[in-house]
Simulated scan of single mutants.
Amino acid sequence: MTTAAVFGVVGVVLGAVMTGLFTLYGPLALERRRTRNALTRAHLDDIKRLRIASIVWIDYLEGVILDLEEGRSVDRAEFRSVIASNLERLAKHKFSRVSFDRTSLLDHLRAASRSVERDLAQLQGTQAVRVSEETYMALQRAFDARARLTPMLTGQTDSLLRRLQGQR
C-alpha cells in the first residue's frame, strides 16, 4: 500500500469520525441552547411578575390609606385577604431565581401593611381616620425599597436579554 493510499484511508476514517461527532454534538448543543433559552425566558417572567406584584401591593396600600383619609369604608377582612394574597405572590419570588433580598422589599411591605391595619382598626363609621405618621413612614420605606429594586431588576433583565441574543 502506498503512502497516498494510507493517507487517503486515514483521511476517510477521520472524516467519518468527525462527521459522526458533529452529527451527535450538533443536536445536543441545540437542545442545550433551547433549554437555556427556556430557563432564561422563565427567569424574565419571574422578574415581570415580581415587578407587578410589588407595584400592586404598594398601590393597594396607597388606596386604603386614601380611603381612610377620606372616611370611606374599608373591610378589614378583605384587607387581610388582599394582603395575604399579595404576600403569597411576592413571597414566591423570594425563593425564585430573582434576587431582591438586598432591598428588604418584602419586609418593608409587610411592615407598611401592619401599620395600615393598625390605622384601619381606628375606623368607625364614615368618619375620616387620621393616618399615623408611622404609616406614612412605613409606606415611604416600602417605596424606597421598591426604588432600589428597579435598577437591580433592570440589570438582571438586560443580562438575560443579552443571553437570549447569544451574547454573554
Rank of each mutant, 00 (worst) to 15 (best):
S81G: 10
I47L: 14
S81R: 07
A121E: 06
F22Q: 14
R148Y: 01
M1V: 15
H43W: 14
S85L: 12
E134C: 07
I65H: 00
V9M: 04
R34E: 07
E62W: 08
R33G: 01
T157A: 10
V129R: 07
T23N: 09
M1H: 07
T19Q: 07
M137I: 15
T103A: 04
R162T: 06
Q127M: 11
L160N: 02
D45K: 14
R36K: 13
G63E: 00
V13L: 14
V98D: 05
I47F: 03
G11L: 11
V9W: 13
S159W: 11
E69N: 13
R162W: 01
R32L: 04
S113I: 00
R118A: 13
T103D: 00
G26I: 12
L106K: 08
E78T: 14
I55F: 12
R114K: 10
R130I: 12
K94D: 09
V64Q: 09
Q167T: 11
I65K: 03
R163C: 02
H108T: 14
E31T: 13
Q167M: 08
W57Q: 02
A5W: 15
R163Q: 08
L66W: 12
S85M: 12
P151K: 05
A91C: 01
F95K: 05
V74E: 03
G11Q: 10
L120N: 02
L30Q: 14
A112K: 07
T40V: 09
H43V: 05
S99H: 13
